[in-house]
Nucleic acid binder design. Sequence first.
RNA 1: GCGCUCGUAGCUCAACGGAUAGAGCAUUUGACUACGGAUCAAAAGGUUGCAGGUUCGAAUCCUGCCGAGCGCACCA
Length: 553
Amino acid sequence: MTPAELSQAVLSAVRAVVEAGGLTVAVPDEVTVERPKNKDHGDYATNVALQLAKPAGRPPRQVAELVAARLAEVPGVAKVDIAGPGFLNITLDAAAQGGLARTVVEAGAAYGRNDAFRGLKVNLEFVSANPTGPIHIGGVRWAAVGDSLGRILRACGADVTTEYYINDAGVQISKFGASLLAAANGRPVPADGYVGEYIGEIAKRIVDAHPGVLELPEPEQLEVFRAEGLELMVAEIRRSMEEFGAHFDVWFSEKSLHESGAVGTAIERLREQGHVFDRDGAVWLRTTDFGDDKDRVLIKADGDTTYFAADAAYYLSKRDRGNEVNVYMLGADHHGYVGRLKAIAACAGDDPEHNIEVLIGQFVKMLKDGEEVRMSKRAGNIITIDDVVDWIGVDAARYSLARSSTDSTLTLDIDVLTSQSNENPVYYVQYAHARMSSVARNAAQLGIDKGAAGDFRPELLSTQWESDLLGMLGEFPRVVASAGELREPHRVARYLEQLAGTYHRFYDNCRILPRGDEEATDLTRARLWLAEATRTVIANGLGLLGVSAPERM
RNA sequence: GCGCUCGUAGCUCAACGGAUAGAGCAUUUGACUACGGAUCAAAAGGUUGCAGGUUCGAAUCCUGCCGAGCGCACCA
């Protein structure tokens, strides 16, 4: 029996009580059934009686007794206790609980998926770092979290488009080009230009590809370095992202918004909505109508459009392409954008609470020799995505970045990650998968098979460790659903750590394969079902994080 | 000054208003002639920044204060 099925059973019990006249209260749409932390509280607990007590005008324990009597009759429910202020503690019989292993194995890769977001078009924009240098650590966090969130939302049935916004228009690209030009000519980098080894490397690649470039008049040279440098840098970023396993469906050029006239069209559309006005020779969007702290300029007095105008056009583009929910993942230094982004949606006549979601990721600090590594572009000590991957590999990097909430600043100790990488929790999870794979290999070698589903005897999975493991497996669909709903991939990682721990304890206490000359028994086969189910869930979960599930380590 | 985010074990971090606040690392002590010891068992470690409030119940929600980070452009 899955938690979802049990939840339905509790609901039916409540309904039965109400229909029999035991309670006068509206039957809730859903009830929460959770795994109690304390084993004495049964396999599952529900607080439905506590919630219904007040509307029903009855003491919680009295409500609990009425529901418990009905629930105890449900097939598969072994026992229902009333505890504390009015919790219902439910114990399942072993067969009902063990049947979950078969459910999981038969669902395979589909186990954990749901259709909560069926038909919902979601756009996820993340990283979107300026193509003037390599992706640094802050961008890497979003690469890991954003890509994982995309996988999770797809598992929840959403139609997801992942997107990288390329800021390829504007002065920073010109500065980038000027920096490349200077490097190619052996001159010092201009003030507030870009420095770093990569500048010299890219400059050299451009010179190699265009042998005559340095003979051209300087303005033409600049144009070559600007355009070619941009192309090479974007290609470099794409390579890094693909190597990191972060895939973007769309690489969206800011410049294209200007060149296609989309920016002008967007301003006109906002004007038709009545939120555009002229003042001091500039064109403004009255974002203060919708909670922004000041109005924003769309077209400057000198006639140039602002970055904000492109933002508005970009948002409308996303909407025009059918995206209903548009998620922006920004660094903490951009949290000031939330108000104006929401205001764009509102000015366009959309619902800013539904059509735009902004996730703010706090900074990632790097620690080396016990001290924070102060990153500065000028000093050239930026930690890039490629650095992190070189040190600890893609799996460990993605996992360490995705396992904690983006709400809190994250501190990564380089020394720990490199020298003691075995202690990284990702290996704990992967090791469980490798162990199960090893058991499967050994079983095959012994000619043992878990057998047909019809011969599986779930009631044999009766120890505390097997019960714990089955309980954890049952939680997976809800973990995926809540991770998707809350946009919090770290919930999947934390769950996997718990699941791996539960598996390791099971493995330690419950021998799966026969030893020596012993024959395989029904218990052997039942445990193979359980191990296979666990392996499936770990593989599915790691897949949601974009982390490999190795068969050997 | 205004605003956003955060404050949990020595460290890094969990905990969708639920029962005794949990893991890992570090520290201490145990377990391999059994399926992978990258494991397991156990000990120790807390006034959840502080003070109020809301309720059957608060780390979680509200208010104030303290502390940290980051924002407050006709820049991009």
